[in-house]
Design a protein around this nucleic acid. Sequence first.
DNA 1: GAAAAGGAAATTG
DNA 2: CAATTTCCTTTTC
Length: 170
Amino acid sequence: MDWTPGNVQKWVLWTEHLYRLPQVGKTFQELSGKDLCAMMEEEFRHRSPLWGDVLYAHLDIWKSGSDEVWSATEADSSCSGQPIHLWQFLKELLLKPHKYGRCISWLNKEKGIFKIEDSAHVARLWGIRKNRPAMNYDKLSRSIRQYYKKGIIRKPDVSQRLVYQFVHPV
DNA sequence: GAAAAGGAAATTG
DNA sequence: CAATTTCCTTTTC
């Protein structure tokens, strides 16, 4: 809440560099910390259709460190809970098609079959949630594969690229 | 050329 | 200690 437009710009550029988000900094100039906190995710998306949600998710992590600001934040699940599991995170994204339908969506919700439309984007979001800037699809997919033996996620009967299936759909 | 599949070792809460 | 994360090699798409 105390950030000057200069602070905000510095934070945005730092995040842009950390997560390799091209061209994000330019679209978030002239904003104070208050402005930034007042912005909902839609506004982030409006300013940067490609990476607005990523930036918002990252800001959300920072907000969670400040109670005063948190109380004014949209009820997003990104800060609660101790160790979020990957399969829970994927279900979270699938729960909000309006926000994440571009990068992950159900092919058959009843059977729990979903497709990762934008692997790089989903990996970035996961990396932000887990504070792992170096996360990528190679590593995220390895983590999904660990679920095979655990019976949490599997490959559908007719294996397709970027398509997985929850073993126990709800 | 990206994605799938795992083994193996390191990391983290 | 479990759940990844990281790294890597071999196949498959």
